[in-house]
Structure formats: structure tokens, C-alpha cells
């Protein structure tokens, strides 16, 4: 009987391989696996055997049935697929070069904010917290507390927008440093950024622009640390490149430096920095004999222009859609 089963199975396998439509497949299926099919009949005959035989032969029959069932199912799917393929081959493919369409069009953030977010991210990694402050400021925070008294040559009234003295539009983000130092005890390690205003309008100046500043005040901070942080920041922003510190002068830092970075074949000024002037620490209520710190500042627009290859500063605030779409 086992031989019979094997024979039936082989026969069904053979027949199955040459079937290519569903009607024929159904017919075969009934012939073998239907209620009166060959395999089903063989299963029914099992009950006439001795228990030992039933066990031995039963296993073979069941295995054959399982195998055939799965072969029939596979064949059915094969035929379905090839029928569908035939149908598809009669239709035209899409023009895949037409523009795609999605319910929500692409949006974007302004290049200036992209740079701010990037710089904040870089500085946060090394422990800087964020501080903010008002844009409408007072002479005290914008100048006096920053060692720029009325008598100071660096105090250029013509450059500063006034609401009504002593209220003005901040000309740099440094007032935030003073406000923060007054609010918390040292050590501090903050970054601040935002809109600043100066009465200047030509192809390299807009009356409003953005700055970012960092401040670190602690007991053991030196120019060497400042150099390390500036180099780190520039490397993160523009990739590996040399920097140099050039002595300069700002009322609120001493010693002060301009930072140049290597750009093409020369040097390009990228920011100003220095050791916080003792008078600034004192104005903030910090003991300058115990604490020292560094501060640095950069123009965001300049960095955005370098990063994205924008050559006209003013185009950053024209909000031309064709420009915005590129970010």
C-alpha cells in the first residue's frame, strides 16, 4: 500500500507540473484531494488495517496529503501571478519622470536660524547653557555695564538706534551677559543670540542682524581655553582648518582678539573675543580677583553666507520665495 501511495503522489506531482489554468487545477484537486479523491479514499481505507500498520501507513498517507495540498496551493498562486502578469503586460507604465505629489509641500527654516541652531548645538555639547534677553535695552546694559562709559571712544551714538535715551535697541547681544551674571552666581557658561540693531545700511550692512555670543566665567579660565573653544567651534562649523588670534580692542574684554580662520588662500575674520574685562565682572557683582572669564561673539549672517555661498547680505532679509525654497 505504501508503494501505491508513493505512486499516487508521484503521479499527482507530474500532472501538477504541466497544469497552467485554474479550471484544470481544480479538476486535479478534486481528483486527488476531493471527498472522493484518491488520497482521501486511501485515508478512509486506513481504518481496516491493524494498529501497527495504521500507524506506519497512516504517517505516509498524511505526509503525502500535506505535501500535495501545499503543492496545489503553490500552483494556484503561480497561476494567479502569471495570469496577472499577462494582464499587466498589456497596460502602459507610468511616466515616472512627472513630479511627485504629496499633500504637505516641503517647508524650510531660514538660513540664519539654521546656523543659530547649529551653533547652539555645538556649544551645548561642551556645556554652554542658553540665555536670552530683551532687544529693547538700556544704555546701562548695552554700554555702561560693559565698560563703555559715555566717555569711551568706542561708544558710537550714531550707530545705535535710540527709542529715547536711555532706552535703545541693543547694538549687540552682550547685554544678555550682564543680565545673566547679575541673575546668577559664578560660575557661568552661557550662549546667547538674537537680533541686534545698528544704524548702518549698505551692501555689507543691514540695520538689523543676528549675533551669537558665548561667555564662560570661572576661577581658572585663560586665553588658552578661549583659543581651544574658538578653534573647536570653527572646526565644527566649517571643518578642520587653521585659526589665528589677532590682538584687537573691545572695551568689554582685555586682552582682546579678532579670530581669523583659514579660507581659500588667506585669512578671513570670523569673530571677536577676549578675556572679560575686570570692570565688566565688577559691574555684574563678581569679584574680579577671584573670577575670570572669556567671551566671544560672531555675526550669524556672515557665517550663513560663507556656509551657503550667499554673496549679498541683504538677500537674507528680502525673503524671496526662490531663495527660501533652497533651504
Amino acid at each position: 500500500m505504501i508503494d501505491d501511495i508513493q505512486r499516487i503522489r508521484d503521479e499527482a506531482r507530474n500532472k501538477l507540473s504541466s497544469v497552467d489554468d485554474l479550471t484544470e487545477l481544480d479538476r486535479l484537486r478534486v481528483q486527488y484531494l476531493g471527498k472522493k479523491g484518491v488520497v482521501t479514499t486511501a485515508l478512509k481505507q486506513l481504518k481496516d488495517l491493524t494498529p501497527e500498520q495504521r500507524k506506519e501507513i497512516g504517517a505516509v498517507v498524511n505526509e503525502a496529503r500535506d505535501e500535495l495540498e501545499s503543492r496545489f496551493e503553490m500552483k494556484r498562486l503561480d497561476i494567479k501571478r502569471s495570469d496577472l502578469e499577462k494582464e499587466l503586460s498589456r497596460t502602459e507604465p507610468l511616466d515616472v519622470t512627472l513630479p511627485g505629489q504629496y499633500a504637505v509641500p516641503a517647508g524650510s527654516q531660514h538660513p540664519v536660524h539654521r546656523v543659530i541652531d547649529e551653533m547652539v548645538g555645538i556649544l551645548r555639547k561642551v556645556g554652554f547653557s542658553i540665555a536670552t534677553g530683551p532687544e529693547i535695552e538700556t544704555e546701562y546694559y548695552n554700554f555702561e555695564a560693559l565698560n563703555t562709559p559715555d566717555s569711551h571712544p568706542a561708544r558710537d551714538v550714531q550707530d545705535t538706534f535710540y527709542v529715547q535715551s536711555p532706552v535703545l535697541l541693543r547694538s549687540h547681544t552682550s547685554p544678555v551677559q550682564v543680565r545673566t551674571m547679575k541673575a546668577i552666581d559664578p560660575p557661568v557658561q552661557i550662549v546667547s543670540f538674537g537680533r541686534v540693531y545698528r544704524a548702518d545700511y549698505d551692501h555689507t550692512h543691514t540695520p538689523m542682524f543676528h549675533q551669537m555670543e558665548g561667555l564662560l566665567v570661572d576661577e581658572d579660565v585663560s586665553l588658552a581655553d578661549l583659543k581651544g573653544v574658538m578653534h573647536y567651534l570653527i572646526r565644527e562649523l566649517f571643518g578642520k582648518r587653521a585659526i589665528r588670534f589677532r590682538p584687537s580692542f573691545f572695551p568689554f574684554t582685555e586682552p582682546s582678539a579678532e579670530v581669523d580662520m583659514q579660507w581659500n588662500d588667506g585669512w578671513l575674520e570670523i569673530g571677536g573675543c577676549g578675556m572679560v574685562h575686570p570692570n565688566v565682572l565688577e559691574a555684574a557683582g563678581y569679584n574680579p580677583d577671584r573670577y575670570m572669564g572669556f567671551a566671544f561673539g560672531m555675526g550669524i549672517e556672515r557665517i550663513a553666507m560663507l556656509k551657503y555661498g550667499i554673496d549679498d547680505l541683504r538677500s537674507l532679509f528680502e525673503n524671496d520665495y526662490r531663495m527660501l525654497e533652497q533651504f
Partner: peptide, 28 residues
């Protein structure tokens, strides 16, 4: 500042600050 500029800022090494400020000192 005079001494630093005369000796040359390029002679100053680069170092990375160690701050005792807690990471969440001030956060707006």
C-alpha cells in the same frame, strides 16, 4: 594685554576649559 600681544597670541597654547558650572546652571 601688552605682554600677550608682544609675545604673540600664536605662542599661547590651545586648551579646553574645565568648568565647575553644573551643566544645567542656567537655561532659558
Amino acid at each position: 594685554e601688552e605682554v600677550a600681544r608682544l609675545i604673540g597670541y600664536d605662542t599661547i597654547p590651545e586648551r579646553y576649559p574645565f568648568s565647575t558650572a553644573p551643566f544645567d546652571t542656567y537655561h532659558d
